[in-house]
Amino acid sequence: MDKFTQLTGIAAPMPLVNIDTDMIIPKQYLKTIKRTGLGIHLFDEMRYTLDGAETPDFILNQPAYREAEILIAGDNFGCGSSREHAPWALLDFGIRCVISTSFADIFYNNCFKNGILPVVLPQEAVDILMDDASKGANARISVDLETQTVTSSDGQVFEFEVDPFKKHCLMNGLDDIGLTLEKVSAIDAFEATAQTRFPWA
């Protein structure tokens, strides 16, 4: 997993609420056996017409936002199914940070496992950043995980909260598996006890 420490980039405004995982990546793309390559299908139904042409007014099709690395989105982003294909598609497109007033639980967790930082900020802050992002490619927004701050293009700073364990993993690019494997002796010990307690399991 790639580390996330600091990012300054173009932010695309998506003021829709309840952007669900089906919108992020529809079910016909769940047949893949890869984590990669889903970027072209990100927001498939909003992004393309039925014959596969780009929908010109969709935000990520506009010249200013084609290189966006940050999404500023409405409330309850990532609701719906548990498909990890949703963060995979975002990452594959190049999105490393999503800022919203709230996220669906599983999606939020899935982001951290894929090097994406989901940032929860109050409505007023999201509104300001949404306006900022609407200015186009010159309005670069900065996100700093170390200091837990988001800075708008004109220098306004917003602080955010993040679980210390998740922060640690993301900043160091650690995957949970690597960390858990450091505790392998505890797992060995558990298994040894279980072997006498629950020998049938």
Partner: peptide, 18 residues
Amino acid sequence: HGIGTSEVEHVLATQTLI
């Protein structure tokens, strides 16, 4: 209960879940 794909990998590798 259900888990995401990264958690599937975690369980395969460690037989545990965070």
